[in-house]
Design a binder for these strands. Structure first.
Lengths: 320, 320
DNA sequence: GGCTTGAGGACAGGAGCTGTCCGGATCGGG
DNA sequence: CCCGATCCGGACAGCTCCTGTCCTCAAGCC
């Protein structure tokens, strides 16, 4: 019965909007009898969604936290907020959830009405262009395009700049994407070259529309994606590797720095911070945030950037 | 029929997992006849969800973007990713969606199974504690607690430090929260003081559990929340206001700085950057990111922080 | 103890769901 | 050009189960 199913969804939606509902309130909103509401609540419970009820004068129904997640019923604004947040998270400061965020984002964007998509894009343009972590950021729209193609086994055409800067047009059968370090990689079968290739996503410019569907291939030697990608890009994750002697204990710095690199304790007043970066400028700025004195051990070029920054600050403070 | 409703949800879920499904695939997964699948697809269409179908050999069903957003069916990992992203967004670098993110987050956390909630908290602890924007950050857990209480008309008890640092225990009937500048404010009826009060959320430490429900009151003079809050906190948004003379054109800096403050053009090589901050240290660091020479016009105390930062960089580069 | 709220059994009428069988339309490939 | 695969939708019979009504019981709150 269409009415019944739709009503169940509406009921779930109502229970998500406000915590506590009385049976008669729900009956009024759903335009059915109170008895039917009770039965619907029962149905939800049978479906695994825990609806807690309290009797008495201040009684009512409330949706609780159960074993499984009920379908999320978002309104327009909320959907936009979720999409924008997820887009930021795929480039974001929290490591370990980039690929899952991307999966959720792909799911959401597939069904996002176009008027909402426009709002997401508009809001996204306010994103802070100065990355908190050094390194290039990847366009979230590109990520979702590629992720969809991977998921749906659709051929992909894109312009690619390789590490020398030479451009080429590629037609590939995308296999999967991997998040390594701060970068995204696409593993795909290059149709023209008839071989497997690994592409850096920040160098990809997809062309629309995507191509026809294909039957997926196995990776050579039955390798899984993580090992395959790491074997190929391991060495080249960062342009620069840096070692900094910090004049503070490893514990004191741990909160702020541990997600950016490794801290090797020396004594109560010193430790070594090992990290990587693509841009020495941003690394130099970042070191200033720590509020701690430091000495650069590697790379020597970093010293020059730090001296330049120091001079700029001295000029700004009028102490040449 | 319970089976039917559940099957509709599963169908919607399947259509969100993969883009393209053939009718027989769906029939197999749902363990019903192909004819029933067709009827279910029809039901979804009647419910307003656009399911596009293509005929022919490479045909199939796919869920399209329609007028309304279908219920999102997330798996565990995705739900965690969404929650973490939203939590970050409430403190995040994108202005204009904080309150909506919070609403969506409240919705999600209410139904989040506890095992997932633990994972969200674990991941959240990796959040970068150095804020990109100057100013205190607010704990997302506190925000959702207060937002729930506002939504459900439940009394709230919390410890509060006022601007002098004196602590007090408050019992309030929360009315609503507002996001102003980089801060969160709670507008509430203070039960003990029998009057309206505005609290800064970053100074609130909620006590559990929340109190009993109450019947909501109107704000005095029928004011709306935005004007009410802005009238009270307008002057005190930032601890410091700063004017910086930047040695670059306003256009050149616009991309990076416009969301942090106002840029007043002077000529092709100079402009004034007007902004606010709670911490002069972070403002000093932030100015270094611009890569441009500058002079501080206000406040004078900022100069000292900049000089200190400059000295630290000079020491680090071995140029005392 | 009275009031309010949720829980749930019984029942009758009817709405709608399901599987089966069928003919039609469209697309792609041999 | 034809064949096979796919989606589309009407007809029909059987039967599930949904809905409103009426009723009794249990649990909180004042």
């Amino acid at each position: 019965m269409l009415q019944t199913s739709a009503r169940l969804l509406r009921l779930l939606s109502l229970l998500q909007i406000r915590r506590e509902w009385s049976g008669s309130d729900l009956a009024e909103r759903l335009e059915v009898d109170v008895r039917t509401v009770r039965r619907d609540i029962d149905k939800l419970r049978n479906l695994g969604y825990p609806v807690n009820a309290t009797t008495g004068t201040a009684g009512g129904y409330r949706l609780g936290a159960g074993a499984a997640l009920p379908p999320l019923l978002l309104d327009d604004d909320e959907a936009v907020a979720v999409a924008v947040s997820l887009r930021t998270a795929t480039n974001g400061p929290i490591s370990g959830i980039e690929d899952t965020s991307l999966r959720a984002l792909t799911k959401l964007e597939q069904v996002l009405p176009s008027r909402l998509r426009r709002r997401v894009n508009a809001l996204q343009s306010y994103t802070v262009p100065i990355p908190l972590r050094p390194g290039p950021t990847v366009d979230a729209a590109v990520l979702t395009t590629i992720a969809s193609a991977c998921r749906d086994n659709e051929r992909l055409r894109f312009d690619y700049r390789d590490h020398n800067g030479t451009a080429s047009l590629r037609v590939v059968e995308p296999h999967s994407m991997a998040n390594w370090g701060r970068r995204w990689y696409l593993v795909a079968w290059d149709v023209d070259r008839a071989d497997w290739r690994t592409f850096r996503v920040d160098r990809i410019e997809p062309r629309t529309p995507t191509g026809p569907r294909f039957t997926p291939r196995e990776l050579p030697d039955g390798a899984d994606v993580a090992t395959y990608v790491s074997a190929r890009v391991n060495s080249a994750t960062w342009r620069f590797r840096a070692r900094i002697l910090m004049h503070a204990s490893a514990e004191a710095l741990s909160d702020g720095l541990k997600s950016y690199g490794a801290l090797e304790p020396i004594d109560d007043n010193n430790c070594v911070f090992v990290t990587g970066a693509d841009s020495l400028e941003s690394l130099a700025v970042y070191l200033g945030m720590t509020g701690v004195d430091f000495e650069v051990q590697e790379p020597p070029e970093l010293v020059e950037h730090i001296r330049e920054l120091g001079r700029r600050y001295m000029r700004a403070s009028g102490t040449e």
